[in-house]
Structures are given as structure tokens and as C-alpha cells.
């Protein structure tokens, strides 16, 4: 039985480049309007998985991502860096899921990949910063969780020892397997793409992506089954639809407001010595400083 490591990864809108049409009227994110990237901490998670794979015999890494069709891009990216296979969990019925509904769907996909030894994810995604899906998935799987992992200390077939990064220090913990781990941004950065792996996986596609290809890859894929990126729908993971999407999400967005600044009567000064002296004089005179 291989030592199976499942890495949860999310394709996220690059929140550093947010445009006007980034939000839809219902308060959910309009992903189509934004550049999409590999969630940064999920790359740290992949690196941790690769380090485990380096140390354990017969280890394999399966990337699981939930999202729209184009999220297959990050599964390929993970393959170029050392992941062995991938599953894209995708269905319109997932749209609008909050962290609880998301973790429900992800946990079902992970269960379908059982038996597994480790589930590793980034601590949080930059589009929400909630850090909730990791612990919630662990709970739904009924396995322990180790959050904020910074370093792999040791691992074997039965247990793993992890150094965690906390607000004011570190903690080293040992957990039996299987366990869910979330990885902190202070963990080692992910190794770059490997040229041989890029060659090997560059034609990896989901079924949906294949339909858009002009060339026929049927034969190639028959010889190289690792080029199939699995695509799982709600039915494939046998999810109850009332636990998904907006209806399966206990949190609702009541309203979204654009930020209106309460404008103050701002005095504008130059950096001149004269202006600076007057300002400092006033601050001292009014006892704001000094």
C-alpha cells in the first residue's frame, strides 16, 4: 500500500490586483474577472508533502483542488513540481459555498481517496484569509489536526513530528497518522518546476479540457494514464446537494458596502523645514507629544 499524501490546493484570485467588477451582486466573488494564481501557502504545503515523500518509501502525492474548470492549471503546476496525480472537484452546485460547505465537499473527495496517511493544506487562502477549511476538513474526516506547520521534523509510516509556528514561539508536536496539517507561510518555499516533470505532465488534462483540445490525444493518454486529471462532480463524491453551495452554507452575506471614507478636514503640508517646524510646534503646544 503506498503512503498517500493528499495536498489540498486552491486557485485564488490575485487579491493584489482587484478591479471594480470583482464582486457579484449576491456578494460572492466574480472569479472570472481576476487573474488566478496558486494560493501561496498551498505551495508551502506542497513543499512539505514533497519533503515527506523524500523520506518515506512508496509515497505518492495527490493534489485535490475544488473550483472551476480552469483550476486544473494549479494541478498541472503541482505536477511540474513533484505531485503524482490530481483531482479537480468541480460542479456548478458548489458555487457560493462557505467554508463549512467547502470542507464538507473536500472531505468527501478525500474519503474517496482513502486509505490516506496525510492531508496537507496551506493555513489560509489569500482571498478569504479565514484559515477555517483546514480544521473543518479535519473535523469532518474525524482525524486530528496540526495547524501552522513550519518544519517537518520526522515522519514514518505510523507518526509524524512537526514544528509549529505560534504567535509568540514554537511548539513541536507528534501525531499518529492519518492527520491533517495546515502549513504556515514561514515554512520552506516550494521547490521550482522540474524540467523533466514539465515534459512528462505538460499534456495532463481534465476531461473537460480535453474536449477543448483541437488535437486528438486519445492514444497518448491510453499509453500514459498519469496524464488524466480526474474530474469529480457532486455525484462522483456522493454529496448531498442541500449541504452544498448557498443552501448548504450557514453564513450568508447580508450586505456588501464599498468603503466610504469619513473625510476629515486634512491640512496639507509640504516637507519644508518651515512647515515641519510649525507642525511640531503645534503638536508640542497641544501636548499631543512631549
Amino acid at each position: 500500500m503506498p503512503f498517500r499524501i493528499i495536498v489540498l490546493a486552491k486557485q485564488v484570485p490575485d487579491t493584489r490586483n482587484v478591479g471594480k467588477d470583482a464582486m457579484k451582486a449576491d456578494g460572492t466573488v466574480n472569479r472570472a474577472a481576476l487573474p488566478a494564481i496558486f494560493n501561496p501557502e498551498d505551495l508551502h504545503a506542497l513543499e512539505l508533502a514533497l519533503r515527506v515523500k523524500d523520506q518515506v518509501k512508496d509515497a505518492e502525492i495527490v493534489i485535490v483542488s475544488m473550483g472551476p474548470g480552469r483550476a486544473a492549471e494549479i494541478i498541472r503546476e503541482a505536477m511540474y513540481r513533484g505531485a503524482d496525480s490530481g483531482v479537480l472537484v468541480t460542479d456548478r452546485k458548489f458555487a457560493g459555498s462557505d467554508t463549512l460547505a467547502t470542507s464538507y465537499a473536500i472531505s468527501l473527495a478525500v474519503k474517496k481517496l482513502a486509505p490516506f496517511h496525510l492531508v496537507i493544506a496551506g493555513r489560509q487562502a489569500i482571498d478569504g484569509d479565514t484559515a477555517q477549511v483546514g480544521p473543518q476538513t479535519a473535523e469532518k474526516l474525524g482525524i486530528p489536526q496540526v495547524t501552522y506547520a513550519e518544519e517537518l521534523v520526522s515522519v514514518d509510516n505510523k507518526q509524524i513530528t512537526i514544528k509549529r509556528r505560534l504567535e509568540r514561539g514554537i511548539e513541536v508536536v507528534k501525531s499518529p497518522l492519518p492527520v491533517a496539517i495546515t502549513v504556515h507561510s514561514s515554512a520552506p518555499v516550494c521547490r521550482p518546476r522540474n524540467a523533466k516533470l514539465v515534459m512528462k505532465f505538460k499534456h495532463a488534462r481534465t476531461v473537460t479540457e480535453l474536449q477543448e483540445e483541437t488535437k486528438d490525444y486519445t492514444e497518448l493518454r491510453h499509453d500514459r494514464p498519469y496524464l488524466n486529471i480526474e474530474e469529480w462532480s457532486v455525484d462522483d463524491i456522493q454529496a448531498e446537494t442541500d449541504k452544498l453551495g448557498l443552501s448548504g452554507s450557514p453564513t450568508k452575506v447580508k450586505k456588501i458596502e464599498n468603503v466610504v471614507l469619513q473625510r476629515k478636514e486634512s491640512k496639507v503640508l509640504t516637507a519644508d523645514e518651515k512647515d515641519m517646524d510649525l507642525l511640531m510646534q503645534e503638536l508640542i503646544a497641544t501636548h499631543v507629544i512631549g
Binding site: 476629515k264 486634512s266 496639507v268 516637507a271
Partner: peptide
Amino acid sequence: NQIADYTIIGQVHEVIPRMIKYY
């Protein structure tokens, strides 16, 4: 600047030494 009481248009490395000097 919109929530500031004072807005100083300038470089940090010019402004701060002047503040320190006066203080």
C-alpha cells in the same frame, strides 16, 4: 490622507529628520 488630520506631501527620509531636529 482622507482620514489624516495632517498630510505631509514628501519623502519619509526628508520629513522625519526635520521632525526629530525640531523636537
